Computed example of a mutant assay.
Amino acid sequence: MIARIVMATGLTTLGVFQAGLALGRPWGAASYGGAHSGVLPGHLRLSSAVAAPVYLGVAAAVGIGSRAGLGALATVMAVATIPNALSPARAEKVWAPVCAAIAWAAWSEKRRR
């Protein structure tokens, strides 16, 4: 139960953040290596527009108890932890523990089978 809450909350947070980026929120310093301190350029806003519903869809699936893809989710989030932790953008580093927590929760839930 706790693992699903961690996953759903983390993924929803990432989805809302990506939606904000896509809609023009000036959060560029906390994304994509921090190369754009304000509003992202069009191609990155498009990337965020694609990412947002993916994160939110996975959050919804996890929230209703789906176990499909937990291994893939754990792997993707574990890998995503690395560039976020190593990002030159201080603001982007906040996403490393979020990704790590989602990875841990997905792995934990997968092993619970």
Rank of each mutant, 00 (worst) to 15 (best):
I2W: 08
A3W: 14
A3V: 11
A3N: 07
R4F: 13
R4P: 10
V6Y: 03
V6W: 02
M7A: 12
A8D: 00
G10R: 12
G10N: 02
T12G: 12
T12S: 15
G15F: 09
V16G: 02
A19Y: 03
A19P: 07
A22F: 02
G24M: 11
P26F: 05
P26L: 14
G28S: 03
G28F: 06
A29M: 11
A29L: 09
A30P: 04
A30E: 05
S31C: 09
S31N: 13
Y32P: 01
G33L: 10
G33Y: 04
G33Q: 00
G34T: 06
G34P: 09
G34I: 09
G34H: 03
G34R: 06
A35D: 12
A35H: 06
H36W: 14
G38T: 14
G38I: 05
L40K: 06
L40Q: 04
G42Q: 04
H43G: 00
L44H: 00
S47C: 09
A49P: 03
V50N: 00
V50Q: 02
A51N: 12
P53V: 05
P53H: 00
Y55S: 04
L56T: 01
L56I: 11
A61V: 09
A61G: 08
G63D: 09
G63H: 02
G65N: 07
S66E: 13
R67W: 02
G69N: 12
L70T: 01
G71W: 14
A72T: 14
L73D: 10
A74E: 11
V76K: 02
M77P: 00
A78M: 11
A78Q: 12
V79L: 15
V79H: 00
N84A: 10
L86S: 10
L86I: 10
P88N: 07
P88M: 05
A89L: 11
R90D: 12
A91H: 08
E92D: 11
P97K: 00
V98I: 15
I102H: 05
A103P: 13
A105K: 13
A105W: 07
W107R: 15
W107F: 13
E109M: 14
